[in-house]
Design a binder for these strands. Structure first.
Length: 452
DNA sequence: TCTGGGGTCCTAGGACCC
DNA sequence: TCTGGGGTCCTAGGACCC
């Protein structure tokens, strides 16, 4: 451990977040094995502790575990991202009140920086948990450490101590401060490190984990003993940084103002295979429109549109095809029409007859601030390179803002470009969501009703 | 029949230049 | 028979995250 005076970071995250969101509005699910499924009800992306205890793995295909519905009282729900996003906003607000700065790292996790805070951190962490629970109904765990990687590890220990009694000391459940463990001498810290497999460390995935194991490195205690230069040579600078962080040296900066995204993607697997070009055009139009909305949402313009289509790699009996193409734009734009038409042109170039397409997507690349894109000089009599006058350009930009406002107010897809197809026609490519719960917090029609 | 979606960073290798 | 070397930029692919 490094100097004991080093301020601490915290990582706060919602336990089994999506499942917990569902349980807030359906308390009968508490205590039961519950999972939330990915889009298309494809595989498990969140699991309650009871579901984990049944042996359901992250990403387990639904059709392989479906029998547990009958055999083990399992409840499976379609993902309700509108609900989770809104619950996340509420949770983040409460968490953010506990420290001067907060970095929202994912939908259910944020880092806090406790620089300059003298309070006892474990006490603070317990109060934080209680307030989040009272305000949102979401149970959380809090991990403290002098580096982000150690805060993540502390959080993992907190969660695991609660879920699997015996592996870690019970007093570390829910709120765990590895900084304090370090100060009390290395004995208990070493014990924690010996009890933790390398694969649990933030930044060590399945590949590296397997390679480390093969080299006889099984636990965090083994990992931090390795020589840094050797790690860099045999693995990567990424793993080297991770090991330094585990030893207490900060390598990963705290980032409370996330930068604009460098690329924006919208892609979906289809509900059923798609064979015809015109259906793919419809899907790609919707994906490109959605990507364009996200683009304008962060105030960017895109310089290139990439589109891809592919068959299902899981269907070994099918002929496989996977192709993508990047279409550069004549000038950076945030205009839905320009983005859609480029995506469709790209699609037409890579489409091949006779395949069962399972997925398509649109990616926006070469992003830059919108203002930069508008700063083009008008030297040739009021007409841009694509033939639109600058007045027209302004009009289109206002049209885009208007479309975004309407869709924000009345729901996604209220206003679309014509090739997106109409709602009335059943589309084979739209995703299946047979088990979605209500949008309790974001749709007037779906609010929970309290009965006397 | 049925296997998610959306990101980041790093590295290696090729193209190109002088 | 000889067949440079070093720099930069770009892209594809791999690894990771949630």
């Amino acid at each position: 451990m490094s100097s004991p005076s080093l301020a601490q970071f915290a990582l706060v995250d919602g336990n089994n977040f999506y499942v917990s969101c569902e349980r807030v509005f359906r308390p009968a699910l508490v205590g039961r094995p519950v999972i939330v499924l990915s889009n298309n009800d494809g595989c498990a992306i969140a699991r309650s502790n009871e579901a984990k205890a049944l042996g359901i793995k992250m990403g387990a295909p639904w059709f392989q575990i479906k029998h547990l519905e009958a055999d083990a009282n399992l409840v499976a729900l379609s993902a309700n991202f509108e609900l989770y996003g809104d619950m996340s906003d509420r949770m983040m607000q409460v968490v953010g009140r506990f420290a001067p700065v907060q970095e929202i790292y994912s939908i259910d996790e944020s880092f806090l920086d406790f620089e300059g805070i003298r309070d006892d951190l474990v006490t603070l962490g317990k109060r934080l948990r209680a307030e989040v629970l009272a305000a949102t109904g979401i149970p959380t765990c809090v991990g403290f450490g002098p580096t982000k990687t150690l805060a993540k590890l502390a959080n993992h220990i907190g969660k695991t101590a609660e879920r699997k009694p015996g592996l870690y000391p019970a007093d570390l459940a829910q709120v765990c401060n590895l900084g304090a463990e370090g100060k009390q001498g290395t004995a208990r810290l070493g014990q924690l490190f010996r009890a933790t497999e390398v694969g649990e460390v933030w930044g060590v995935g399945p590949r590296i984990s397997a390679q480390l194991n093969a080299a006889g490195v099984a636990t965090v205690a083994d990992l931090i003993k390795l020589d840094l230069a050797t790690i860099r040579k045999r693995f990567s600078v990424v793993l080297e940084r991770t090991v330094m962080e585990l030893r207490g040296t900060r390598c990963i900066a705290f980032d409370d103002e996330p930068a604009a995204k460098q690329q924006i993607m919208c892609s979906r697997s289809f509900g059923t295979p798609v064979l015809q070009l015109d259906e793919l055009v419809e899907a790609v139009t919707v994906f490109a429109s959605r990507a364009a909305e996200k683009l304008r949402g962060q105030g960017s313009a895109t310089g290139a549109v990439s589109v891809f289509i592919r068959t299902s790699p899981f269907r070994k009996q099918d002929r496989q095809y996977s192709q993508s193409v990047t279409v550069p734009l004549r000038r950076p734009t945030g205009d839905t029409h320009a983005i859609v038409s480029s995506a469709v042109r790209g699609l037409e170039a890579i489409y091949r007859d006779g395949y069962r397409y399972a997925k398509a997507g649109v990616m926006l690349l070469d992003l830059q601030p919108k203002d930069l894109a508008q700063g083009e000089l008008d030297l040739v009599g009021g007409s841009g390179p694509d033939g639109t006058s600058h007045d027209e350009g302004r009009d289109r930009s206002r049209l885009m803002s208007a479309i975004d406002r309407v869709n924000q107010r009345y729901g996604r897809g209220s206003l679309t470009v014509a090739s997106a197809g109409t709602e009335a026609v059943a589309k084979s490519w739209t995703m299946r969501q047979d088990r979605r719960t209500q949008r309790y917090t974001t749709s007037w029609d779906e609010m929970p009703i309290a009965r006397a």
